[in-house]
C-alpha cells in the first residue's frame, strides 16, 4: 500500500495561486491566507484534494460526510448576503462544486470512474464482457417479467438478490486494491478496474430492479 501523502504530492505537484482580490498567495485552503476572502474551490485541486483525501479508492464514508458538512457551512451562500457580488458568485459556484464532488466521491461507481481518469496513463484496454453474469441477469430478468410471483419465485428472487449484492460488494472492495496497484504504476490494473466497474454497473441495475419488485410484492 503506497503512502497516501507521497502519492498525492507526486500527482498534484505544487501549484500556487494568487488571490483574485488581494493578489497575494492564497495558501492551500479555500480562503485567502492574507485577506481571508473566499477562493474558487477548483483551485484547491480535484475532488480528493477538496476533501483533503489522498488519491486512493478507499474512502471513509463518515469522514466524507463530516467534511462535506464542514465545507458546506463554509461555502453556504446564506453567509455571503452582505458580501460583494464576486464573493456571492464564488460561494454559489463553490457550493455547486462541493455538491458534485460529494456525490461523486460517495458513489462507488462514480468515484472509481473519476479516479480512473486521473490515474490512468492513456493505455487502451480490451473489455471482457462478463458472459456468465449476463446469463444470470437474463435468468433473473425472466422472473421479474412474470405477472405474479409464487412464494417459490419470491424465495429465488430474494436469494438471487442476496448473491448479486454480495458480489457487488466484493467487486467494490476489490477496487481499492486495484487502484493501489494502478497508482503504484501497474498499468495492467486499468483493465481489471474497468471490467470491475462495468460488472458493478450491471449488478446495480439488476439489484435495483429486484428491490423494486420485492417491495411492490410485499
Amino acid at each position: 500500500m503506497p503512502n497516501p501523502e507521497s502519492v498525492r504530492t507526486a500527482l498534484d505537484g505544487a501549484a500556487k495561486h494568487l488571490c483574485w482580490s488581494c493578489r497575494e498567495e492564497t495558501g492551500e485552503g479555500p480562503f485567502c491566507e492574507s485577506c481571508v476572502k473566499i477562493q474558487p474551490a477548483e483551485l484547491m485541486g480535484d475532488y480528493f484534494a477538496l476533501f483533503e483525501l489522498p488519491r486512493a479508492y478507499a474512502v471513509d464514508a463518515q469522514y466524507l460526510k463530516n467534511k462535506f458538512y464542514e465545507l458546506s457551512r463554509k461555502f453556504h451562500p446564506d453567509f455571503y448576503g452582505d458580501k460583494t457580488d464576486a464573493e456571492k458568485t464564488l460561494a454559489r459556484d463553490n457550493s455547486a462544486y462541493l455538491n458534485t464532488a460529494f456525490r461523486t466521491l460517495s458513489d462507488p461507481i462514480k468515484r472509481a470512474e473519476y479516479l480512473l481518469v486521473r490515474c490512468a496513463r492513456g493505455y487502451r484496454v480490451d473489455l471482457v464482457p462478463p458472459q456468465g453474469l449476463f446469463e444470470e441477469i437474463l435468468t433473473a430478468g425472466e422472473l421479474l417479467e412474470k405477472n405474479s410471483l409464487s412464494s417459490e419465485d419470491l424465495t429465488t428472487l430474494r436469494e438471487t438478490g442476496r448473491v448479486f449484492a454480495v458480489r457487488q460488494d466484493e467487486r467494490i472492495v476489490s477496487l481499492a486494491g486495484l487502484f493501489d496497484r494502478l497508482v503504484a504504476g501497474d498499468d495492467a490494473a486499468k483493465g481489471e478496474i474497468e471490467n470491475a466497474i462495468n460488472e458493478i454497473k450491471y449488478l446495480r441495475t439488476i439489484l435495483d430492479r429486484i428491490d423494486q419488485r420485492l417491495h411492490k410484492t410485499i
Partner: peptide, 13 residues
C-alpha cells in the same frame, strides 16, 4: 450472442 451495455445495465441475448 450475449451482449450488454454497462451504462444502463441492459443485457441482450
Amino acid at each position: 450472442g450475449i451482449v450488454g451495455a454497462p451504462e444502463c445495465g441492459d443485457v441482450m441475448k
